[in-house]
């Protein structure tokens, strides 16, 4: 269709194809992620943007095999040469925490309130590296230092409730990177934090990526966050990946109406006071409620009859899934050459 641009020489660190996540329920099942495909290059930063219910967090959980027992994951997840969906549970477990670190949204509840910070950090090394207790605690102190936590030795002895929210999120980041993973998945890492702390945490993630050569997969509802950190951005709606592209290109010239609407919905300091914000009208369509057509159609201002009547229309601009568009009537078509 289009002349293929130069493909990256190395195979990517994470290569996801046709990822489907389906929850088994009494009345059949609901699909929360349908046919998602993307790459994360080694040392790269990729962001997944979407509203709640878009399937972005389900995608993250599926990547680390922590979808619940009643959930089916299909497709392909290749990580550093291994097919994760073919791994047995024990091998998958050895990979989690060691080669893929994860940071979750709420630092208040993602640390065990009954255990000292030091123990929760050290056990990662004890489990994956067979480190002795004293070596693991020493490494834990270094990891706290690496995430800019002040007086780390003293923090090791403290309990989570004795730390502030931002400090706790630094601890969970330290926990995710202590074993030196190749990929860090951060699921809404700043959503529960104060705005000033949010900026600090984002800077920390960016710094860690550069210093330690980590690849970062950032999941957020906030376009500002991906604009700050990610080279590549994916936009999800109701379980579908609707647009993907280099962040700068995607934000400056969105093709999918949803991406454009998201950009408009961002309040800015230039927004005149008193003027209503440009919210998205309507409620997100749940994946299983829609037919074969576009799942954004009900809320789309550019909707045409064929959006609903015809199956999804997917365009890829290049073979490496760098630029993807899932829309029949985009704001602008793919340029013949990029």
């Amino acid at each position: 269709m289009n002349p293929s641009p130069p493909t990256p020489a190395l195979s990517p660190l994470l290569r996801v194809r046709d990822l489907c996540v389906r929850h088994a329920t009494a009345d059949g099942g609901t699909e929360t992620v349908s046919g998602v495909a993307f790459d994360v290059p080694a040392g790269g930063a990729v962001g997944i943007v979407g509203e709640s219910g878009s399937g972005k967090s389900q995608t993250a959980l599926a990547l680390i095999g922590l979808h619940g027992p009643s959930t089916r994951v299909q497709g392909s997840i290749r990580f550093d040469g291994d097919e994760l969906l073919a791994l047995d549970p024990a091998a998958f477990r050895r990979l989690r925490g060691a080669r893929i670190g994860t940071v979750f949204q709420d630092p208040m509840s993602s640390l065990n309130p009954y255990r000292r910070i030091g123990m929760q950090l050290a056990e990662v090394l004890e489990t994956h590296r067979g480190a002795t207790r004293s070596a693991a605690w020493a490494a834990a102190a270094r990891a706290l230092d690496a995430v800019r936590v002040s007086s780390p030795l003293q923090r090791l002895q403290q309990y989570p409730h004795e730390l502030s929210g931002g400090m706790r999120q630094r601890v969970t980041i330290a926990m995710a990177i202590i074993a030196g993973p190749q990929l860090l998945i951060a699921d809404e890492p700043t959503t529960a934090l104060d705005p000033t702390v949010q900026v600090q945490i984002l800077e920390l993630l960016d710094q860690l990526r550069r210093e330690q050569g980590l690849a970062l997969l950032l999941i957020t509802h906030d376009l500002g966050v991906v604009a700050r950190l990610c080279e590549q951005t994916l936009v999800m709606v109701s379980g579908n990946l609707v647009e993907a592209g280099p962040t700068r290109e995607l934000l400056s010239a969105p093709r999918h109406p949803y991406t454009a609407a998201l950009l408009r919905a961002r309040p800015s300091i230039h927004h005149p006071p008193g003027m209503p914000l440009n919210g998205l009208p309507g409620q997100p369509t749940l994946a299983h409620e829609s037919g074969q057509g576009c799942r954004f159609a009900a809320r789309c201002e550019r909707v045409q009859p064929d959006c609903i009547a015809l199956p999804l229309y997917r365009q890829t601009h290049d073979a490496a899934e760098q630029r993807v568009l899932l829309c029949r009537h985009p704001l602008r078509p793919f340029a013949p050459h990029v």
Partner: peptide
């Protein structure tokens, strides 16, 4: 959530 974190750290069920 903190048990999910523990799982994400790769701890065994026994741990």
């Amino acid at each position: 959530p903190w048990i999910r974190t523990a799982r994400a750290k790769g701890l065994s069920e026994r741990q």
